[in-house]
Design a protein around this nucleic acid. Sequence first.
DNA 1: GTCTATAAAGCGATAGAC
DNA 2: GTCTATCGCTTTATAGAC
Lengths: 200, 200
Amino acid sequence: MTRPRFREQVLLAREEAIVASVNRLLAEKGFEAMTVDAVVADVGIAKASLYKHFTSKEELAAAAMVRVLDRALDELARLRALPPNALGRLEAVARWSYEQQIAGQMPILPSQNSTLRAALTQDKAYMDRLMQLSDELGGWIVEAQREGHVDAALPPELVLYTLFARACDPVLTAIRASGAHSDEQIVGWLVRTWLKGLAT
Amino acid sequence: MTRPRFREQVLLAREEAIVASVNRLLAEKGFEAMTVDAVVADVGIAKASLYKHFTSKEELAAAAMVRVLDRALDELARLRALPPNALGRLEAVARWSYEQQIAGQMPILPSQNSTLRAALTQDKAYMDRLMQLSDELGGWIVEAQREGHVDAALPPELVLYTLFARACDPVLTAIRASGAHSDEQIVGWLVRTWLKGLAT
DNA sequence: GTCTATAAAGCGATAGAC
DNA sequence: GTCTATCGCTTTATAGAC
């Protein structure tokens, strides 16, 4: 037992570096196009070393998702105090999602890949955070419906899914590629049309 | 030259069968998860035979997209006569897109795959139809803006992209999976919230 | 634990007989 | 043109030396 805490710190730092690279590469290329070789090249370690920390490519993606969900939960905690009403908080979350995309911090996972889905649903850390996020956002949605800002006829579930879909909205990339408008302008349009569509 | 027209018909029928399978498999699994082996197994031919008709997997996807764009153009032609105003026609197109998805007829292509994008942009049949579709829909959008049904402050380009995004809206699959609502109900909600978001 | 080297498998694409 | 059989490449994953 020679300085176990120090070694532990080093290992955690390496894992953190791996997850950071995975997050970036997932945002750039998506899950299928991201190769484990690219990850280890980016981190600067050998592939076998990576597989000592994570036992599969799916587990890598799950770790990146946990990281993103943690950042989202942090943002929710920050928003809980700030905006006056539920609608303002939902708007801020949508805006935050778009900004994460623009910053290249939003990993892209294929919703159809069955092995990946299985790995995610069996990952307790991921599922816990997803549930927590859904619960809190679901509460805000119901609140916004009670306040008359969101159509009460819409299932809160549907509203929640449309919010999640903002995190991978292809329209953002498409219209940014045209180069005709500023990022702030685009995000404003997208967030506002989203909310207006949900209004009473 | 023994019965050339007949042989030609047989070849065309086989190509049609291939494209139909590709279309279905693309809708089911997406481009990367769809293997050429799965296509030939579905059609019931040998792989080398398929490569006599299409020289690459990308070309297969392009053919499927041409097929879908043709169906979309047919639908536009049908709508050109029916609904009274541009807004009604746009609504009908969105509804049609969702119905194609439900019917498993909407191929899913990754917007990031560079080799696929290159193959598509160099495919004249695909680009011609895409331009034609964009032009006609763009005209309807501007018309709806002039009639005061769509916010004139939004770039028509952005509105067009949001319409294209309806063709691969992940919310449809997510909420259908819950099984709590009928397809008609879901499509109605999604189309209406989309249009309401664009309103003046 | 990390490295080099390699196994094992899946994929797109092709050669050659018929 | 279609088939069987296989190539060549990429990718995930692991063995074994240090």
